[in-house]
Design a protein around this nucleic acid. Structure first.
Lengths: 348, 348
DNA sequence: AAAGATCACGTTAGCGCTAACGTTGTTTTC
DNA sequence: GAAAACAACGTTAGCGCTAACGTGATCTTT
């Protein structure tokens, strides 16, 4: 095999009558060389086709430009959007992003994090705030810059940026209550898989409970949170005996659209006979003939803020430990108009 | 900062009275140590909390376990599915996957590839077969194992696995012709951005042309290939003067669903007044009340085959240079029933 | 039973780069 | 104008690991 690096900093130094160290300094942009020498070195490097050996750099300096980012899944638009926000910032700052998908498995995440450390990663970015206790402890002990995103906590491993999922669920419930829906059902994935979704559901349930209302049904389907999963869960839910729910709150907009399709196919009148709510305000919601009532989550911005903060941490700066970005209710056509503020039964 | 690697192979050797080399061999699973010693070393490594320094490994051996994968975008379900297929295989074989998103920019891809080489990547995986000529040449010269996926060519950089996009477009056109649609229009993104989509379109156009039919309209919207882009392009297309198309072929199912929504909102009768066709058979198609006529692409399998082949290449094995996986037409409800096989005008 | 083959290890010499500490000549300071 | 400070370089000594080449003991082979 042709040698990949026919030219190293030694060769540049030889060509210019400089020591390796001066070349190294010039190329890395650190102090200790005159402006003229630096320009010469950079030009020579380009001319000679020099490429740095990143492994050698990392080994010698015990630092790398690798940032490990762990997300549950590449499906759904949520994580790609957050990632896009992050990567733009990381790329610009010269970091390489190494993405892992955990498939909602924290043990896998912990293994992967350890491998990232084997690479001397500059920082780790983890989704959510629920991780293996060992991993938490280890990252803290090592003082590795770590960003947790999407969820929030007042005690992050290092820094975090996210939304308040419980509150988002509660906000949605409050709206549904205001619309007069009194027999809510929830559709999601098995408990413990997506802890953010669990928190949203907890917020929803608690808010309904404080109005004295219990959930009619909670369907958890062991499937990715897809259109189809939403449709399947809705079919089984509507086929169940007992009181029929008057509003269905889904884990996200994709499941909600699956449910919406099912309800329409069954001829249910939406939003009167049954209301539908999603989460995230995903792209599909822009073109639906009947936009879904949902919660808008600031995904790209979250990625940008997170990336900016973690880069600051890498550079040793002090940053806000915990950033919580507000979410916003988006009222679509899949829920009834809210009752007037005069009271829950003042109008219809 | 606590030292990240408090224990190296030297420490294990000291503890066991062995040389570093024996430890290294035992840990890497290469020949040259007895079975008993190997077990001892592995146990000691675990007990002592040994973690390999990947940078040191790469530097010393001039090989790494990093595989760089370049895809245009994480949006749309296409690439995540292919990636999922690949990663399962890569993970299992002990490789770390480093994903880049090029945003359909080949210069960016070339830059990124060069950085992967700086990391001593074991292999590169590139989307499509259209790359910067310099990059092609360089990867060939260096004899870096390289997989091109999604598209095919008889002269790949190294190995490739994909589908025949031109033929997929032609197959679709043949079906649309058989359905009696004679005024086709096409909706996609600007030419040159997504060369696979360009090839599909070429196949479509050529097939219609060989039946003596020109496209009524070709709309290229400068936007990601989203639901919304499909809707917007369809609106502008239907508002245009001149003959109205009787069938709309979209870059993918998401754009097609955007277009379908628009047509339904405008009260057009589907599939009689206007037919709709997509591409990829994306997940949403499972739950649409009116499934879209589309082409099924084998995405997960493509990822698996590609990963398997490139791993074989890394190990120096000889593999099929070019694997073309067949696609399949899926007839939905958005196109008319094909005319009987008696001939194009024998029935209706 | 001598010569070669094989096994299980050890030694040597880096991989390409950088941290830390020189060294030299030129400024600054009071 | 001598001491101190600084700028612009060079030297030394690794980072943690592995390729390549020993070495001595045991096992074949004929």
């Amino acid at each position: 095999m042709t040698r990949r690096t026919p030219v190293g900093i030694r060769d540049i130094g030889d060509a210019l009558g400089l020591s390796m160290m001066s070349v190294s300094r010039a190329l890395r942009g650190v102090e200790g060389v005159s402006a003229g020498t630096r320009i010469e070195v950079i030009q020579a490097a380009k001319r000679m086709g020099y490429r740095p050996n990143r492994n050698a750099r990392s080994l010698a300096s015990a630092h790398s430009t690798l940032i490990g980012v762990s997300i549950p899944s590449l499906f759904s638009d949520v994580f790609p959007e957050i990632l896009d926000g992050m990567r733009a910032t990381f790329d610009h700052a010269g970091f390489d992003t190494l993405i892992d998908t955990t498939h909602y498995n924290t043990a896998r995440e912990a293994d992967w994090a350890e491998r990232m450390l084997d690479w001397n990663a500059a920082a780790l970015v983890l989704c959510g705030v629920d991780h293996e206790p060992d991993l938490r402890r280890r990252l803290r002990d090592l003082r590795i810059p770590t960003l947790e995103f999407w969820d929030t906590t007042d005690d992050p491993i290092d820094v975090c940026v996210g939304i308040d999922h419980w509150k988002a669920g509660a906000d949605l419930a409050e709206h549904l209550l205001a619309c007069g829906y009194t027999r809510p059902a929830f559709i999601g994935v098995p408990e413990g898989r997506d802890t953010r979704a669990d928190k949203r559901l907890a917020g929803l349930v608690a808010t309904y409970a404080s109005a004295g209302i219990d959930a009619v049904d909670v369907r958890r389907i062991d499937h990715r949170a897809t259109f189809e999963a939403g449709a399947l869960a809705t079919e089984s839910l509507l086929a169940a005996e007992g009181p029929r729910p008057d509003v269905l709150a889904y884990l996200n907009d994709h499941m909600a659209f699956g449910g919406l399709s099912t309800c329409m196919r069954l001829g249910l009148s939406i939003p009167d006979a049954i209301g539908i709510a999603g989460f995230n305000d995903l792209e599909i919601n822009k073109i639906l003939p009947m936009p879904i009532t949902t919660i808008i989550t600031p995904r790209t911005r979250m990625g940008e803020i997170g990336a900016r903060n973690i880069i600051a941490r890498i550079k040793g700066a002090v940053v806000e430990r915990c950033v919580t970005i507000p979410t916003e209710l988006r009222i679509g056509h899949t829920t009834r108009a809210p009752l007037s503020s005069g009271g829950p039964f003042s109008s219809n």
